[in-house]
Design a protein around this nucleic acid. Structure first.
Lengths: 179, 179
DNA sequence: AGCTACATGTAACGAGTTACATGATTAT
DNA sequence: ATAATCATGTAACTCGTTACATGTAGCT
C-alpha cells in the first residue's frame, strides 16, 4: 500500500503530473521507494477514483496535455491515518545473495565478476547521493527546518546504504577470491 | 524469478518438503530472500510441473504425510543458466522512509517512536545473526571450504545490513529530535 | 532519417499477500 | 480446554513488470 502513500506524501508539497512523479521517483526517490511509470499511472487512477486526489487538465503548446494532480482533504486524512500505523521493515530479496549461495555450480570468476559489477553500481549511486548532499545540504544541519531534516534523514539513509553495500562487496571479494 | 532459483539452490544440497523450506526460509534465509509458505507451495508446484524438481511422498506416523522434493538434472541446468545472467540490485521500498518524508503531518513523537521501534527490531535481528556466526563459524575463516565461505559471505551481509540500519536509526533519531 | 524527451494510457502476466480449509499430535 | 507445531493446499486480491499503442517536438 505504500506506493499510494508515497504519491500522497509527494503531492502534499505541490501538484504533479504522472510523468513528473515518475521522473521524481526515478531520481530523488530512488532511495526510499521505487516504482515504474505504469505503476504510477495505475495508482493515480485508483487514488482519484477514491477521492484522495483530484486532477486538472493543463493544455500545453507543442506538447501533450498534462494532468496535474493535487491531494484532497480526504487524501490528507488517509495519509495521516497511515502515518499512525506501525510499518514493517522491508523484506530482503537480494538476487546477488542467492547467486552467492549457489556459486559453487559455476566457475569462481563468474560470481566474483558479478560482485564487482554490483560494487560498481553502488559506487555510482553513492556519488549521485553525495552530489545531492553537497548541492542541497551544504549548510549546518541544525539550521534546517524539520521538514528539510526529514528529507535529509532519508538522503543519509541512501548514502549509508550504498556505503554498506560497497563495504560488503569488498569483504565478499576478499573472502571468495582467497587461495 | 529468484524465488524459484532460491528453492533450486536450497534443494541442491538436500531434499526438503514445502514446510521444511518455509522454516528454513523464515530462519536462515531471512537475510537473502523472504517468502511466505503459500508462495513456496505455489512455486514448488510450478517447478515440479516443468520438471526442475521431483517429489516423493514420505508417509509419517502420527503426522501428515510429507512431500519431499529433490532437484533434477533439468533443475541444475536451469540454476546454472540463471547464475550466468547478471542480477540487478534489489529495489528499495522502505515504508519507514516514506513515513519520514511525510512526518510533518503528525506529532514529532510519532515518527521518533517508530524509528526507535525499528531500531529495536534490527538490534534483535543482529543478535540472531551474531548467534549464528558464533555457532557455525567459530574457526578461522580461511579454513572454510568455498561453499562454506559463500554461506558465510551471505551471513556477513545480514550482519552488516542490520548494523547499518541501527546506525541510521541512531543518526535519524539524533537529527529529528533536535531542539 | 532516427533518437530522445514529453505525455498518457491499456493489457497481460508474474510475484507477493491475505484469508480460508483441513486435520492430527504435543505441550501448557 | 486451547494453543502451538506439523503438513498441505485453494482462492482471491494487490502489487510489480513487460509489452504494446499513440503522437508531437527538438536535436543530431
Amino acid at each position: 500500500m505504500a506506493l499510494a502513500h508515497t504519491i500522497l506524501a509527494t503531492l502534499g508539497d505541490e501538484a504533479y503530473s504522472g510523468y513528473d512523479l515518475w521522473k521524481k521517483f526515478s531520481q530523488t526517490s530512488a532511495y526510499y521507494w521505487q516504482a515504474s511509470q505504469q505503476q504510477i499511472y495505475r495508482e493515480l487512477g485508483k487514488l482519484e477514483k477514491e477521492g484522495a486526489i483530484a486532477s486538472e487538465i493543463i493544455p500545453q503548446e507543442g506538447r501533450p496535455n498534462k494532468k496535474l494532480y493535487k491531494i484532497t482533504e480526504k487524501g490528507i486524512e488517509k495519509l495521516k491515518d497511515w502515518l499512525l500505523e506501525p510499518a514493517e521493515p522491508m523484506a530482503i530479496r537480494e538476487e546477488l545473495l542467492v547467486k552467492v549461495i549457489a556459486a559453487e555450480l559455476v566457475p569462481r570468476s563468474v560470481i566474483l565478476q558479478e560482485i564487482k559489477r554490483h560494487r560498481q553500481i553502488h559506487t555510482q549511486q553513492l556519488s549521485v547521493y553525495k552530489e545531492i548532499e553537497q548541492q542541497k545540504f551544504p549548510e549546518q544541519v541544525d539550521q534546517l527546518s524539520f521538514k528539510q531534516k526529514c528529507f535529509y534523514a532519508t538522503l543519509r539513509c541512501g548514502l549509508s546504504y550504498e556505503s554498506y553495500r560497497i563495504a560488503w562487496c569488498d569483504e565478499a571479494i576478499a573472502l571468495l577470491s582467497e587461495d
